[in-house]
Write a protein that binds this DNA or RNA. Structure first.
Lengths: 196, 196
DNA sequence: CCCATTCTTGACTCATCGTTCCAGAACCTG
DNA sequence: CAGGTTCTGGAACGATGAGTCAAGAATGGG
């Protein structure tokens, strides 16, 4: 009934997501998005209406992907402590700066970046970020509650409080990762885990 | 010998600092800076050369002020645990969102905001941020080492590692503060302090 | 009290911003 | 294979970005 799209919307969203992830929202121009997605301006605006909406869709996609992956990681085999250590060490690896001077450095977490850049300035995006944060907190809470049932962790502790504590450490790593080296970050992971 | 400046550079820097703090670097326009400082465009550029340099000077001023205040807080009376609790609870208060819908929400920490927005894209600012982070870590390390000498904390622990852990929690609060409420943040502070 | 110097004001430059528009191409249904 | 519809590529739009500049005003040393 009409001409079909020539692009895969998910690929385009991935490309846009990477552009926003590397530069941030404000510093990513429509031209950058045209270049990185390969679409023409018309197609891009026809499909996504505006830079703002494109960012929202990219952030949603990021949130789905990430939280799903991290939920799977937490539900994997081994003790919950081991699972949480792996979760945090994945962040450490992602944030570790290399010695290559051409390396643009770690990109952090798109949701954290969006929170810092846009929370308070953009209610919609703030709400999206909150949903992502809450979903991650819930995944951690469930894992910790499981550890309590299994006798791995003191059942007297508040699993929700512990979950927020771990999440807080994780987001701290996203910030300190901008300047700290891998050893320092790994030490923080050790100290964080000593609470559990 | 020449016409004297009609403005106080420190006041102007404070005004610019607040503008950048509220909106971020990229989203703060030269016009915003003209409006918030009250200077004419010419005077602003004559005194600070460029938006980038103005940001650097504002960030430097922020770093001096903040680290000095936090060093003083850590060196104050009482146990080091109490001092660190007060430091973290100050952050919690700063980041606590009110129920007022007109409240633009917490602004976070300018150094953390700069790290997230600009690290990897701007080597000079990344270096400045690193200096601020390291100075805060050192202040914490000194306080923790003092607590060890005083028998308040197990002298077997690595004070540098503990300092980075506390700093990491603090920067995590700057992120989670964008969406979490005061109770959640206060709980994170409690859990963080349970390590010491 | 004049002159070299620096500061102030705001109009101006020109590049780039996000977005719109349009002419042609591609498709599906009938 | 005609007609209705949507997609494509890129030119064009008005607005705004960062930064410049020129003309006048304020200063203090000679």
């Amino acid at each position: 009934m009409a001409r079909p799209k020539e692009f895969d919307p998910d690929h385009v969203l991935d490309a846009a997501m990477n552009a926003f992830w590397s530069r941030g929202y404000a510093a990513t121009s429509a031209q950058n998005l045209v270049d990185s997605t390969g679409l023409g301006r018309g197609s891009l605006y026809n499909a996504f209406s505006s830079k703002h909406r494109l960012f929202q869709e990219a952030l949603t996609r990021y949130g789905e992907e990430r939280t799903a992956r991290q939920e799977a990681l937490l539900e994997g085999p081994g003790t919950v402590r081991e699972r949480i250590r792996e979760l945090l060490m994945t962040v450490v690896e992602e944030e570790s700066r290399t010695d290559d001077p051409d390396d643009p450095g770690p990109r952090g977490c798109l949701a954290v970046n969006a929170a810092v850049e846009l929370a308070g300035l953009d209610a919609e995006i703030t709400a999206q970020v909150r949903r992502i944060f809450e979903r991650m907190a819930e995944a951690l809470r469930a894992a910790l509650a499981r550890a309590q049932r299994d006798g791995e962790i003191d059942p007297g502790r508040d699993p929700q409080a512990l979950a927020l504590f771990v999440l807080n450490s994780m987001y701290g790593l996203r910030v300190l990762g901008k300047t700290a080296d891998r050893r320092a970050l790994a030490g923080i992971v050790d100290t964080t885990l000593s609470v559990l």
